[in-house]
Simulated scan of single mutants.
Amino acid sequence: MTVNRNLVDIMKHFFQLTERNTSYKQETLAGLTTFLSIAYILIVNPLILSQSGMVKGAVFTATALTAIIGSLLIGILSNYPIAIAPSMGLNSFFTFSVCIGMGIAWPVALTGVFVASILFVLLSLLKIREKIINTIPSDLKHAIASGIGFFIAFIGLKNAGIIVSNEATYISIGNLLSPLT
């Protein structure tokens, strides 16, 4: 019992619960709420990336591990309550634009992601990334975020059968009376 009590005190001190006017109960509810709000990624991410040729089960495992490790690291290293998970916008771009659109095999495209991540870390360490971000107008930042959101919504509507291909207009409403839709 002493070990458990000491662990509780250590966590309470480390995460500054008293100073931040919060409690274990409140943080547990917040964590559960956050998990429930991002849990969809465990289903959607494998569905999207499997269309590039990746194995759904492997993508599910990688998605779960990435979210767990990333969230733990950000919580422990920065002492900040943020959940980290793979980006649906980038995964959609990877699958539909790079792999399917450009015809690049997913292992080759994933190598490109690895190289880009090394460059990203270097740009971050050299403080160049921050300078680049600060030069982008905020309206453009909002437009990019909105565009990614619309792109993800479009893919969801297409996968649900709510919108379908149409030679004359490019897209049209699907059969809303179909049980699959």
Results as ranks from 00 to 15, higher is better:
Ile162Leu: 14
Ile148Leu: 13
Leu126Ile: 14
Lys158His: 08
Leu140Lys: 08
Ile162Asp: 00
Ile162His: 04
Ile132Thr: 04
Leu157Gln: 03
Val164Phe: 10
Ser165Gln: 08
Gly156Asn: 10
Lys158Gly: 00
Thr169Cys: 08
Ser146Tyr: 10
Lys141Trp: 03
Lys158Arg: 14
Phe150Pro: 07
Pro137Glu: 12
Asn166Tyr: 01
Ala143Lys: 01
Arg129Asn: 01
Asn134Ile: 00
Leu157Cys: 13
Val164Pro: 06
Asn166Val: 05
Tyr170Leu: 15
Glu130Ser: 04
Glu167Met: 07
Ala153Asp: 06
Ser124Glu: 11
Tyr170Met: 14
Ala153Phe: 09
Asp139Thr: 12
Ala143Ser: 12
Gly147Ser: 11
Asp139Leu: 12
Ile148Phe: 11
Glu130Tyr: 04
Ile128Asn: 00
Val164Glu: 11
Ala168His: 13
Pro137Gly: 01
His142Lys: 13
Gly147Leu: 02
Ile132Leu: 15
Asn134Phe: 00
Leu157Met: 12
Ser138Phe: 13
Asn159Glu: 14
Phe151Pro: 05
Lys131Ala: 07
Ile136Asn: 03
Leu157Trp: 06
Thr169Tyr: 09
Ile144Val: 15
Ile132Ala: 12
Ala160Asn: 07
Ala145Thr: 15
Ile128Tyr: 01
Ser138Met: 08
His142Thr: 09
Ile155Asn: 09
Leu140Pro: 03
Ser138Arg: 14
Glu167Asp: 15
Ile155Lys: 14
Ile144Glu: 06
Asn166Glu: 14
Phe150Met: 12
Gly149Asn: 06
Asn134Gly: 10
Ala160Arg: 09
Ile152Tyr: 11
Lys158Val: 07
Glu167Asn: 14
Lys158Glu: 09
Ala160Pro: 02
Leu157Phe: 15
Ile132Asn: 00
Thr135Leu: 10
Ile152Phe: 08
Phe151Cys: 07
Gly149Val: 05
Ile152Ala: 10
Ile136Trp: 01
Phe154Ala: 13
Gly149Lys: 05
Thr135Phe: 01
Thr135His: 13
Ile152Ser: 09
Tyr170His: 13
Ser124Trp: 11
Lys127Ala: 11
Asp139Met: 13
Gly156Lys: 06
Phe151Trp: 08
Thr135Val: 07
Ser146Glu: 05
Ala145Gln: 05
Tyr170Gly: 11
Gly149Cys: 05
Ser124Asn: 15
Asn134Ser: 15
Ala145Asn: 05
Asn159Lys: 14
